[in-house]
Amino acid sequence: MSVLMANTRRDVEVHRYPILIYALVPLAALVLQAWLPRVLGRYMWFDLPLVITVYFALGRRSPVQGMLLGGALGLFQDALTHNAIGIFGIAKTIAGFIAASAGIRIDVENHTIRLILNFLLSLLCSAIYLFIYRILLDMSLEWNWWTELFKAVGNSIVALILFPQLDRTQIQD
């Protein structure tokens, strides 16, 4: 269990990145999320803005920054749909908060933890989306949990590949 807890100095340090990475990576996530369905069709089983939100929230270990990044990405994602603006925003705000809060307490360098965290946060985002749509807005929406499960698995796999690549861009002390 001690392996999972952030108890060493290295584990609790805040990751820093070049400013270009902060600007370009979320933008690239948004663009790819909008463009890749044209290539992959119905097999677009991942949510790149969520993966990026989780990564920066875990690395920065700041709930406020995680929330702001998640909220901004979610709002832009909402703006690209025809639905009300704020549904993805709320879901990703909460995801950013939880990821950053978890980043303070656990060892986020561990691949298994990253995998599980992405999987759980994906399902949580889907549940929040469904809650807002059906309960909060009282609007009808057909839902398929299998698709969301596939998406959660896809997010975990993408995170497993993407996180080490992004780790290379960290500013080393």
């Binding site: 999320q33 909008a34 463009w35 369905p37 044209r38 677009m44 690209l80």
Partner: peptide
């Protein structure tokens, strides 16, 4: 020409 999409299953729109 179709150049992009919404990126989610919940909104089947394209640009």
């Amino acid at each position: 020409q179709a150049i992009g999409s919404s990126g989610t299953d919940q909104s089947r729109v394209f640009y």
